[in-house]
Write a protein that binds this DNA or RNA. Structure first.
Lengths: 260, 260
DNA sequence: ATTCAATCTCCCGATTTTTCGGGACTGGTT
DNA sequence: AACCAGTCCCGAAAAATCGGGAGATTGAAT
């Protein structure tokens, strides 16, 4: 079996989502899983979130058409958790044999019907270069006897976690890069000669401006006069080639010059 | 040397922050590091963030009294990254040899002065059970020759990453539990990502504002009166709970409501 | 020791822009 | 009928922008 650092190395050399998908499929088959998928779990109200995976088409379409994203107990847990878990460990409100089945219950039942006896889910929370936060859910699907799964997991749980973290990261990077290339937002500024450098104070006033503070507020916070804040702000806006405070703040954020 | 799963096992049995601290100190000494710390890196405007670590008291006080939290390039990188890195790989705005030193440069210089030759930083982004998102920065400090560090890292980088993830998680869990006991249960807030819906026009005016356009500019572009643009802007700012145009634009970007 | 450039600090006055509180009319949808 | 999105207006107060100027401090280079 492939070692963890070999697996991660293989993942990190991938340059397309297709390649990435095949690489991971190879790795997890090694461990005994049948397929996997990874989806953006950030927003419960989106019907068809971002998705990559190798699970059979009929399972994907069942999942989507039944709106399981909204009720899947695994996805719900992923949003509030950081530790990997098995399907078997998720507590689904017991079906009492009477009344209506809960959405969570239906989801798990449908997975069983598709031959998935167990699954290993890895939550991954991450920030993009703008500092925006996302959550993703990755699942490995198991079709063999559960007993074998238990044995595997007792020994390889951390390996799987680590591999999935690096895989998810790589997937995000590739998608983000494609998006950047399509939109052409952030080129140009790579040349160190033209690179913009703000002073500490300029960054300070921009950061506070980004948080909605007025000049007067910022002056109070930084313990300097309003005139000084205005001066820093003017210099920063000029350096950034922006046309006003709002534009300056947005540019600074996109260039990674300030955090908010 | 302790195996990874043993280390993680040891971490997961800890029940107090003190115990946790000692456990990790033992583990990293095994790897050759001198000390470590972990701090909340959520936002750059907090003076004394949550902190646990074993770094010498004089380094901690230097770090705090100089306000390095605000300018530390490692912390800045952690906020927008998910992959571990070494201090040596952080690009500090080159010191041009003239004028003042930037805060980032001063921070790295001070670390050197305290005998830290290298460091390994692990970002960790996580959600608590209420769905709130945090970022933490963990650093392992190295005082031996750098060459030995490079060698260690080439072989143990993933082990260190994994250990730190589980450690950070355990630290958060313990602190959260103590906090709950003291303060009672905090109510979960609505996820702002799903709660706010802007109308098409509101998004339009915000997008143009993000590009630096004034109300008059936007009115010309959208072919509507200035009054209308103002109205849309006011509504958008109110919906976003922002305090002015700049704040509104920043919030909208972070919530993924507008693209620029 | 001197010079130099960058940074940080502060002020003035005039103009432009934003912000805030109202209100009002239209055209769809539910 | 009620609601929402979109459109438009008024007036006054608050804030930002612009283009100057100017002294203090700092760290590096000659």
């Amino acid at each position: 079996m492939m070692k963890v650092d070999e697996a991660v190395g293989a993942i990190e050399t991938c340059s397309s989502t297709e390649e990435l998908k095949n690489t991971l499929q190879g790795i997890i088959e090694d461990y005994g899983f049948s397929s996997f998928n990874m989806l953006d779990a950030g927003n419960p109200h989106v019907d068809v979130p971002f998705y990559i995976g190798t699970t059979p088409e009929n399972w994907v379409s069942t999942y989507i058409s039944n709106g399981f994203v909204h009720v899947d107990p695994c996805v719900a847990r992923v949003r509030r958790s950081n530790t990997p878990f098995s399907w078997g460990d998720v507590d689904v409100p017991k079906y009492e044999g009477t009344g209506r089945k809960s959405g969570a219950w239906k989801t798990m039942e449908a997975a069983q019907d598709h031959g998935f006896r167990e699954g290993f889910v890895v939550p991954f929370h991450y920030t993009d270069p703008l500092g925006r936060v996302y959550s993703s859910s990755s699942a490995f699907y198991w079709t063999d006897p559960v007993k074998k799964y238990r044995f595997l997991l007792s020994r390889k749980r951390y390996d799987l976690h680590l591999i999935m973290i690096y895989w998810a990261q790589r997937a995000i990077d590739i998608v983000a890069e494609q998006h950047r290339n399509r939109q052409g937002i952030l080129e140009a500024q790579q040349d160190p000669r033209t690179a913009i450098t703000l002073t500490d104070r300029e960054r300070d006033v921009l950061s506070w401006a980004a948080r909605g503070k007025t000049v007067a507020d910022t002056a109070g916070i930084l313990f300097i006069s309003e005139s000084t804040v205005e001066t820093h702000l003017r210099h920063a806006i000029a350096k950034l080639g922006a046309s006003n405070k709002t534009h300056g703040v947005v540019k600074a954020i996109y260039l990674g010059l300030i955090d908010v």
